[in-house]
Nucleic acid binder design. Structure first.
Lengths: 243, 243
DNA sequence: GCAAAAGTGTTGGAAATACACCCATGT
DNA sequence: ACATGGGTGTATTTCCAACACTTTTGC
């Protein structure tokens, strides 16, 4: 396992060297994998492979293979690095400044992924793979601070127009957990009653008739997200210029 | 001029051949340039250079040079193909399916650009460069239908959260023109009185005290968009989950 | 009984919608 | 005079924001 990892790294370096000498541009994918735990928005990072970035943290990235689509590359990287599949994943945008990679010209496509930290225990720990608070100013390699920031902003927008957030929660969750999630992502405080009203009125949650347990206070009801209900609903029609 | 164009094409093909033989992935930028004329949303297209796509229409694209940022490449392509600069331009996303380019593996980054058709008369007409209705089902090369579609959807969203639309209008415009623009982009009908109320209440328009002329009806007042007013305004705060 | 969070309704204001008539201009 | 779009106001509804007390559980 470790051997194959090292092998892989070597290949990357070889390819990078080749790209550099050819004067050709490389393409990579970087996965920004968000999780939610302890009422904090987290992101998965590894210790950088590159000598120039020794000790710095890096997003999960790799060069795109010639025979795989960008999305496939993103799923592959996710799988290789974390052992996870069946997670939410969406492209955010490309980052392609000339100077962003020290070894060669590499354009990277950033992908956002949302996973449930508890459900998908980390199976691998290569390169000190671990969760970090998004808010904490990590010492990062490349232009990864910028990429992480762009992905966080993307998430803030996206989570308000599409029900992504549930991917970050356990299948059954209390409304308090859901609200904590939104507060963590959006970095705002929300009114509890209005928040509940809002989500109940959207008619997307199924009551499980189960309750929290082992909590040192009155246990809350647990709900499940019903994606079919979401799909079958009329999408809000346009207008209301919003600037 | 024509000679240099041909020269350029040859270079592209050479590079593509090189990329193919190397098994390396190429990077291009495709510009989706929207305009607004005759109350229709238009897009700039050229006749494709590629033999495989003879007779088909193509977005304005080119390989990214090794020493230029992606944004720079987009501005360059715009300038080379249309002679225009100082236009609105923003990255949308990358398209990187394995099979999207017949000659080689090429990942393309799509950019949206908005220009005022009347103000920037087309200075060049290489490859039959011309405006086409977005709604009209053109016979397009590559995966350009998909890219155009994604960019149109991007525009529909973006124009409602940021005042881009003014880039498509003359400096001085009537409210009717503004409304026609939004109706064309969003493909909806809007109520005239509510539309006016909305934009006046946003306090972004300066009254020029001028009027339309040469119109076969009562002339409308002309307004200018005031970007400073926009910047100085409080941006709407979050919340209001919107699914 | 105390701490901690669950659960619940009402009200006022703002914004969105729907809708109809008179006005200014060119022909 | 008439056709065309410019310009305006009001009533209704919907959505959002603000806000306080009672309930259930663990300790």
């Amino acid at each position: 396992m470790l051997a194959s990892k090292l092998q892989e790294r070597k290949d990357v370096k070889t390819v990078l060297r080749q790209l550099k000498s050819d004067g050709v541009i490389g393409i990579s994918v970087d996965c920004v994998i968000f999780g939610f735990d302890d009422n904090e928005l987290k992101v998965l990072m590894i210790k950088s492979d590159m000598e120039q970035f020794e000790g710095k943290w890096s997003l999960l990235g790799d060069l795109v293979h010639r025979n795989e689509d960008l999305d496939e590359a993103a799923y592959r990287i996710l799988k290789e690095r974390t052992g996870m599949s069946d997670v939410y994943l969406e492209q955010v945008r490309a980052f392609g400044d000339v100077i962003r990679h020290p070894a060669a010209r590499v354009v990277t496509i950033a992908y956002c992924s949302l996973i449930n930290i508890r459900q998908h225990r980390l199976e691998k720990h290569d390169n000190e793979l671990q969760w970090h608070k998004v808010s904490m100013g990590l010492d990062m390699a490349f232009d990864h601070p910028r990429i992480l920031n762009a992905c966080h902003e993307w998430l803030q927008k996206r989570v308000q127009e599409h029900p992504l957030g549930f991917s970050l929660l356990p299948q059954k969750f209390s409304l308090r957990e859901l609200q904590n999630l939104y507060e963590a992502i959006l970095e705002v405080k929300l009114d509890r009653r209005n928040f509940r009203k809002k989500f109940f009125s959207m008619n997307l949650l199924d009551d499980t008739n189960e309750y929290e347990f082992d909590v040192p206070h009155r246990p809350g009801k647990l709900y499940k997200f019903n994606y079919e209900k979401y799909l079958s609903q009329e999408r809000r029609k346009f207008m209301g210029i919003d600037f």
